[in-house]
Deep mutational scan, measured.
Amino acid sequence: QNEKLANELKSLLDELNVNELATGSLNTYYKRTIKISGQKAMYALKSKDFKKMSEAKYQLQKIYNEIDEA
Rank of each mutant, 00 (worst) to 15 (best):
V18N: 11
Q59M: 14
Y29Q: 03
N2C: 14
K62S: 05
I63K: 01
I36P: 01
K35P: 01
G24L: 15
K46P: 01
E8D: 08
M42Q: 09
A70Q: 07
E55D: 08
K57G: 02
L21E: 08
I36C: 11
I63E: 00
M42A: 08
L5H: 01
K31D: 02
E20M: 15
I34Q: 00
Q39I: 14
N2W: 15
L16D: 01
E15I: 13
D68C: 15
E20C: 14
K4V: 09
T23Q: 05
S11R: 13
K62H: 05
E20I: 15
Y58T: 09
A22Y: 07
T28N: 13
A56F: 02
N2T: 13
I67K: 02
E15A: 12
K46M: 12
A56M: 04
M53H: 01
S11Q: 13
S11P: 00
Y43P: 01
Y30P: 02
N65T: 10
L16R: 03
K57M: 12
Q1C: 13
L5E: 02
K4H: 07
I67A: 02
Q39P: 01
T23E: 04
L5W: 01
K51V: 11
A22K: 15
N2E: 14
S54I: 12
L45V: 03
E15L: 15
L9S: 01
Q59W: 15
D49P: 02
Q61H: 05
L12S: 01
T28Q: 12
E15G: 06
Y30L: 10
Y58F: 11
K52P: 01
D49L: 04
E15H: 11
Y58S: 09
Q39C: 13
K35N: 05
L60E: 00
T28R: 12
N17D: 11
N7I: 12
Q39A: 10
Y30Q: 05
K4Y: 05
L26W: 05
K10W: 05
L16T: 02
S47N: 05
L21C: 10
K31V: 06
G38K: 13
E66R: 06
Q1M: 10
A22I: 10
Y64S: 04
G38M: 15
K31N: 04
M53A: 01
T23R: 04
T28S: 12
L21H: 06
A6N: 02
K48G: 14
Y30N: 03
L9A: 00
L60W: 02
S25M: 10
A70D: 03
G24Y: 11
L13A: 01
Q39R: 13
A44M: 01
Y64N: 03
A70M: 09
S47G: 04
S25V: 10
D14G: 07
S25D: 06
S54P: 02
Y58A: 12
L45D: 01
K48A: 06
S47E: 08
K31R: 11
L5R: 01
L12H: 00
K62R: 09
S47I: 10
A41L: 02
N7D: 10
Y64M: 11
L21T: 06
K40Y: 15
L16M: 05
Y43T: 13
L60A: 01
D68L: 15
M42V: 10
E69S: 10
Y30K: 02
E8S: 04
S25L: 09
G38I: 15
F50G: 06
M42G: 04
L5I: 07
S37C: 15
N65P: 01
E66K: 06
R32S: 07
A70C: 11
L12C: 06
K31C: 09
K62V: 04
I36G: 03
E66P: 01
A6F: 13
E15W: 12
E66N: 04
E55P: 02
S54K: 12
L5G: 01
K62P: 01
E15V: 13
L21K: 13
N17Q: 12
L5T: 02
K40T: 07
K62D: 03
Q39N: 07
K4D: 09
E66V: 03
Y29R: 05
G24W: 09
R32N: 12
D14M: 13
D49W: 02
E3N: 07
T28E: 15
F50S: 07
L21F: 07
L13Y: 02
N17R: 14
V18I: 10
L16N: 01
L13K: 00
T33V: 11
Y43N: 13
A22N: 07
K51I: 11
M53Y: 02
K57E: 02
K51E: 11
D68A: 15
L45E: 01
D68W: 15
I36V: 10
D68I: 15
N2K: 12
L12D: 00
L13T: 01
N27K: 08
L45G: 00
Y64Q: 06
T33P: 02
V18C: 13
V18H: 11
F50R: 04
G24D: 12
L60D: 00
I36R: 08
I63D: 02
M42F: 08
G24N: 13
Y29W: 07
D14P: 00
D49K: 03
D49M: 03
S25N: 14
Y64T: 03
N7V: 09
R32I: 14
E66C: 11
N2D: 08
A41D: 01
T28F: 13
E3S: 07
T28M: 12
L21W: 08
N27M: 06
L45P: 00
A56C: 04
K48I: 03
Q59H: 07
V18P: 04
Y58W: 10
Q39K: 09
A41R: 01
Y29V: 03
I34T: 02
I34C: 05
S25T: 10
V18E: 13
K51H: 09
E69T: 12
E8L: 05
S11C: 12
E66L: 11
D68K: 15
L26G: 03
Q61T: 07
N2L: 15
Q39W: 13
K40Q: 09
Y29I: 04
S25G: 10
N19G: 04
K52M: 12
T23N: 06
E55I: 10
N17H: 14
L60R: 00
L9Q: 00
